[in-house]
């Protein structure tokens, strides 16, 4: 067993059954061959273990976190602005004066080509709480995203986007989170629509993107805090026409 001990230690240290001495020993020692095979089988037991389950809402939560972080980053960079180091100011002034005279003619030619503005992006997590007075099986939930706002992580849509899914809404609150990115300044209306067959109710969230921190307000809903919109949902009595006043 002394030789076996040395060989096995050598294998553990090297992380491989290599080398002349090791190979020669293994060719005549069934115990060490079995020991090596056991190591492989131990690894195979790990492959059999079930994959840890991803918690519900994991993807949405990650998308929201990324969207928020991107929003903060773009605000920070905008706040920092562009500054010329002090020691460059005399040099920059001289260069600017020279350039003013030398490129005036060129400027007339190229003035139509303005520098592309820096891309604008602000991210925000929208939390929507739907409140159903009674269980609502097979409800269609839709988000209408206008041009200028898209889902975080999505390939950007130029003409707006409609996101829809069907789910059973139990009585009481059902909450979901959506990561949004605004890529144009201004106010953008995001409609949240809940329908069952032809009966619908809507709420509208306005995404205010621009200077400072991105904000959300709602039309017809209840602002719970800066980033959360609560919609109390009930079916409207008027079939076929989404209305934001009824039941919200």
């Amino acid at each position: 067993m002394g030789a076996c001990r040395d060989i096995r230690k050598a294998i553990l240290d090297a992380g491989a059954a290599e080398g002349w001495a090791v190979t020669r020993h293994l060719s005549s020692c069934t115990a060490c061959v079995q020991w090596l095979a056991d190591l492989q089988m131990a690894e195979m037991t790990i492959k059999r273990l079930p994959v840890p389950e991803i918690p519900p809402g994991f993807e949405t939560r990650m998308a929201c976190a990324i969207a928020q972080e991107r929003g903060h980053a773009s605000e920070d960079s905008a706040a920092r602005g562009f500054r010329i180091p002090k020691f460059w100011i005399p040099v920059a002034a001289s260069l600017a004066a020279a350039a003013l005279f030398s490129v005036a003619g060129i400027w007339l030619v190229v003035k139509e080509k303005k520098a592309a503005p820096a891309p604008f992006e602000q991210g925000v997590a929208l939390s929507v709480a739907l409140n159903a007075a009674a269980p609502l099986p097979g409800a269609d939930v839709m988000l209408h995203l206008p041009n200028g706002v898209d889902l975080a992580g999505a390939t950007r849509s130029t003409g707006g986007r409609h996101v829809a899914w069907r789910q059973d809404l139990p009585a009481g609150n059902t909450a979901f989170d959506v990561g949004l990115v605004a890529f144009a300044k201004g106010d953008h209306r995001v409609d949240v629509v809940v329908c069952r067959k032809n009966d619908c109710a809507t709420g509208t969230v306005v995404v205010h993107a621009g200077e400072g921190r991105i904000r959300l307000t709602s039309i017809g809903g209840t602002v719970q805090d800066d980033n959360q919109i609560g919609l109390s949902f009930a079916l409207s009595k008027t079939a076929g026409i989404p209305t934001k006043e009824e039941g919200i």
């Binding site: 994959v51 840890p52 993807e59 990650m62 991107r70 992006e121 975080a152």
Partner: peptide, 28 residues
């Protein structure tokens, strides 16, 4: 980039979670 970050990393989120769950010993 920050712009394509979510798109390029999303296919690996489940793998990251699987690795994390067995590293930190607490699934939560």
């Amino acid at each position: 980039t920050a712009r394509n970050f979510a798109e390029l990393t999303r296919p690996h989120w489940a793998r990251m979670h699987r690795f994390a769950a067995r590293l930190c010993r607490d699934p939560e």
